[in-house]
């Protein structure tokens, strides 16, 4: 803390709870250790010292979905893998975010026409927050995608939209989650939680 040490008198800092929480969460996005194909190599390069995703606080790749906030779907998703991807997504704790990295996960990529086994975009399986195109995307592109995730976290709201919330009484939920993709087929389509 040398950069800030000794610059202020003893003080009280005010901020909103929303800002403080969003700042904390956007600065410690923990991705899941999860790579499916060649994009994973580029994701590893992003984690290594040259591009260093840790500068954005997202360098702690967790080996379990239970500790992860961000799923970077890096690589071709096959039909056989789709149910596993879905399960990993469901095992992650809220709030959770998904980056679709690379042409294959964005929309089938080179396998769109002649790949009998490739899911035509991972958004048919899990809800995607940020799409990073490229084949594979350069590490800079993935970092850009991460920054868009951080923007999304920054814009999250804690307060109620409507309803009769008071102290100790829950108001209506703010919708910052995406609805399930309607082609997922893994259970009922989630009803839109939008109330505003």
């Amino acid at each position: 803390m040398t950069w800030i040490e000794g610059r202020f008198e003893e003080n009280v800092i005010t901020t909103t709870l929303e800002q403080a929480m969003n700042w904390a969460q956007e600065s410690s996005v923990w991705p899941m250790t999860f790579g499916l194909a060649c994009c994973a190599i580029e994701m590893m390069a992003t984690g290594a010292s040259r591009y260093d995703i840790d500068r954005f606080g997202a360098g702690a790749f967790r080996a379990t979905p239970r500790q992860a906030d961000l799923m970077i779907v890096a690589g071709t998703v096959t039909y056989k893998m789709a149910s596993r991807v879905r399960r990993l997504y469901e095992q992650m704790a809220d709030p959770k975010y998904v980056i679709a990295m690379g042409a294959c996960t964005v929309g089938g990529g080179p396998y769109f026409k002649h790949g009998y086994h490739v899911v035509k975009g991972v958004d048919l399986v899990v809800p995607v927050d940020v799409y990073v195109p490229g084949c594979p995307p350069r590490p800079e592109a993935l970092l850009e995608g991460l920054m868009r995730i951080q923007d999304k976290i920054k814009a999250r709201k804690l307060g109620k939209v409507s309803g009769t919330a008071s102290f100790g009484q829950k108001g209506e939920k703010i919708t910052d989650e995406l609805a399930l993709p309607h082609h997922s087929g893994y259970g009922k389509v989630a009803e839109s939680t939008a109330t505003a």
Binding site: Y79, K80, A82, Y116, H117, K120, L124, H183, S184, G185
Partner: peptide, 25 residues
Amino acid sequence: CPEDWEGHPLRKDYDFPLEYHGIRG
């Protein structure tokens, strides 16, 4: 392929799946 896969994909007359376990093909 998964064990419940239909058909044999590298046959020239193979038809691509339109849907697999609810995922649009």
